[in-house]
Design a protein around this nucleic acid. Structure first.
Lengths: 334, 334
DNA sequence: ACAGGAAATGTTATCGGTATCATGTTATCG
DNA sequence: CGATAACATGATACCGATAACATTTCCTGT
């Protein structure tokens, strides 16, 4: 109880200076092996717990990597985060996670907050940010990685893919299988830039392929998921048969739409094709399997880790852009 | 560029002492309102960024709440985490997240690491820990909350529910609808205590209700999800019809099993009942809807937030146990 | 046995805020 | 108008680890 055990206490107990204890605990080879062992032992006995805060303060290296995600409640982002975690495991770096709830204003606030912790690198999801935030980050001069997007004017490194290209794959595929009355199912226009980019991608692709205008089905404010897809289709009723393909903003939405369509007795894909986005597990397992786009969430995480390692090993300063691409994954719904 | 801007620099620019700047930035009312505004302005102009590390060091309050989750890649845990995040938003506390990958040994290591950051509270998922970890945490004397479980010997506060009771609900329901050849689908016996508790819960409940022995279907090492459920049933083929109910360790597994069963032409629930666990979105949306148990992931998060607020407001020291309960949610698969 | 260098350990100052106590300055009132 | 309180600001020390430099101890070869 009482006061906390510090290196000074350990040093006293061992009969050495705090400096030696510091070195010993960091496994500094200039400290005699026997001393090192003894220090370890005594530290354990005293219940000493290393203070990373003091270290971070003194060395001006926090050991933190700040990460922003739109939401942790999304299998794809979660997968990327998992890859980051496991890739950074053992490197002595800690992830500092924050969620933006798909809003750039919230992102700005979050990043300001994260920066006060002195992170050694900043990993952002998406390439859309407020001007103020860009300024803050730039002024800080710390390594930045934007992921899940290919921003036109990157802040630093980039690991992502083109949402527009991905949507083009889908539209091209639908066109080639004879569909031409497309509807896009996504979140209401609002703060969710990612959804907006996908929507625009579909519209542009449709135009390019000579299709009539794409209908917009609004599944509510972001984030939208299975139940929103199901609800909006349910509300439409048989009206939905007016279209011959539902292009959904994500796999969960697609799955939701599909179940609603099936419940009303329509057949997928005979009456209606359905496509998703993201290659979520549900797309692979659903009945029928959902045609989707694989965006390789895990690969993004791994690439970010590789970049981070390079950064901390003091490698090249020039910002790198890595396009992990995306590929159409044919299912049975189209 | 060059050196970083500190309070000293701001103070100099304003023509006041660092102490006044410190107070001004914290909105200390003893500082003249005009001065406060001016300090704010100058700090902004200079691009000053507050250093939480220094603050944490000096005040010995990190502003961190450490949280361990088995995996962020699980909609339920993610939901709890989201509730924690949004509940703590604006309180000046930062969540420090770590994943245990469902292994207590990993949890111990993780907690040791997290403790070096001086968290002001520790939120653990689950009630199974290594002895060493219990000792470390106890010795530290910081507030602890265990969630998602009702441990027999809690480390501190508890917000959870009884997994055994929940499984009993399910088994009782299956029995009451005439099923008696049960099989449990879950992860291999191993480090995943949560899965083990559910399995044992089913076995005990079956015995209590006078059922013959419950068969065990091994979907592979934890964590198991949709595709593992689908794969193991697919591998069994029609053999699965030997049972009249599949009790699955989670909704995703249940969904995977169901799709596999349906693909081989069997009917759910006519040929086979299927139950899940967790009230995941997929259970509500799937076709047919999956009978499951609602464990109120979000409520757990909210309750934890309430406890934390109480702790930081210096309230009652006696550990509290909150049972958020669980309830059977009837679907169409049983 | 001794110079010279390697190995092991110690001393001092410091990172950027802020608790604490001290001091100066401006209202308030009999 | 002088005393006293209310308000505003400042000086000093310190949180716990460690970089940088200094010193001591122990070998090694001749």
């Amino acid at each position: 109880m009482s006061a906390r055990v510090t290196m000074r206490d350990v040093a006293q107990a061992v009969g050495m200076s705090p400096m030696t204890v510091s070195r010993a605990l960091r496994d500094d080879r200039t400290v005699n092996a026997k001393t090192r062992a003894r220090v370890r032992q005594v530290a354990d006995d005293l219940g000493y717990v290393y203070d990373s805060t003091a270290q971070a303060f003194r060395t001006q290296k926090s050991g933190f990597v700040a990460v922003t995600l739109p939401s942790v409640n999304n299998a794809n982002f979660a997968e990327t985060f998992r890859a980051l975690t496991s890739g950074l495991d053992g490197s002595g770096l800690q992830l500092l996670l924050g969620s933006t709830n798909y809003r750039v204003a919230r992102e700005e606030e979050l990043v300001r907050q994260l920066l006060t912790r002195n992170p050694e690198a900043l990993v952002l999801t998406g390439g859309h940010h407020t001007e103020a935030m860009r300024a803050v980050v730039r002024g800080r001069g710390l390594p930045v990685i934007e992921m899940w997007d290919l921003p036109a004017d990157p802040l630093g490194h980039v690991v992502g893919f083109s949402n527009a290209d991905a949507m083009d794959h889908i539209v091209a595929h639908l066109v080639s299988t004879g569909r031409h009355r497309l509807a896009f199912v996504g979140a209401s226009e609002g703060a969710d830039m990612r959804g907006a980019v996908r929507r625009d991608g579909v519209v542009r692709a449709a135009r390019k392929h000579g299709l009539p205008q794409v209908a917009m089905i609004d599944a509510g404010p972001a984030p939208v998921s299975m139940r929103h897809g199901a609800a909006v289709i349910e509300a439409m009723g048989k009206e939905v048969a007016r279209y011959d393909a539902l292009v959904c903003v994500s796999d969960p939405v697609a799955f939701g739409c599909m179940t609603a369509v099936q419940r009303m007795g329509l057949s997928v894909p005979d009456d209606l094709a359905i496509t998703g986005f993201g290659h979520f597990e549900v797309a692979k397992v659903a009945n029928p399997r959902i045609t989707t786009v694989n965006v390789q969430a895990e690969a993004i995480g791994r690439q970010v880790v590789t970049l981070l390692q390079g950064i901390f090993d003091g490698e090249g300063e020039e910002p790198v852009t890595i396009d992990v691409g995306s590929e159409l994954v044919l299912g049975e719904t189209s």
